[in-house]
Amino acid sequence: MNYKFDFGAVFERAPELLWATLGTFGLAFAGMALALLIGILGVIARTSHNKIARAPVIAFVEIVRNTPFLVQIFYIYFALPLMGIRLNPTATAIIALGINGGAYAIEIIRGGVESISKGQVEAGYALGLHKADVFRLIVLKPALRAIYPSLTSQFIMLTLTTSVCTSIAAYELTSAAQRIESDTFRSFEVYFSVTGIYLVISSVMMGIFALISRRYFSYPAR
């Protein structure tokens, strides 16, 4: 092997990679927040008794889960301007991530709400509690705990999917990597470093999720 490794080019551009990493975290957290919002609202509509509320949610989930994210993000990027909405690539990326993550979140959260035993809900009613109290005080926490592992692994997926947003030139790690690579031709060194940075990003995310879990879901399971 005659190839000489030279990470100097990468170290020189380290500040750029650092900022791009923060960009990736930003896209990920904003995308998660939007996905969670879409997920919760979607579940309320999805589990309602009204067919007109349920049908569009079912269609939305099926369309999003059965098409590639890259196509979705292009679709949003080029469709929005046709409707007169002009957004920068980063805002577009957040919307695309939120919509994509939201469709998966709807299915995950629905499973959690359905996993709560009818008995606990009835016990709440039998004690005289009203519907809103039963949902807020009795259903919510065990439901979130039940779905927490699947929801957080979905959110790790969403974090890694931010790299696809490079296709519309959103400000994040993979697009920075491409820029540095085309400037320095140090492809291996750049992507080796970026792989390491993504591993760190995922680990930090998992650490944050574990802390939240320890703080809020520490009660013993049966």
Binding site: Q120, A123, A126, R145
Partner: peptide, 28 residues
Amino acid sequence: EVGMVFQSFNLFPHMTVLQNCALAPMRV
């Protein structure tokens, strides 16, 4: 005025025994 006890207990798993008992008097 009517208390009920169920076959499957139906305690709230995320609350302590004391919190299970104090919830309804406080909220209702």
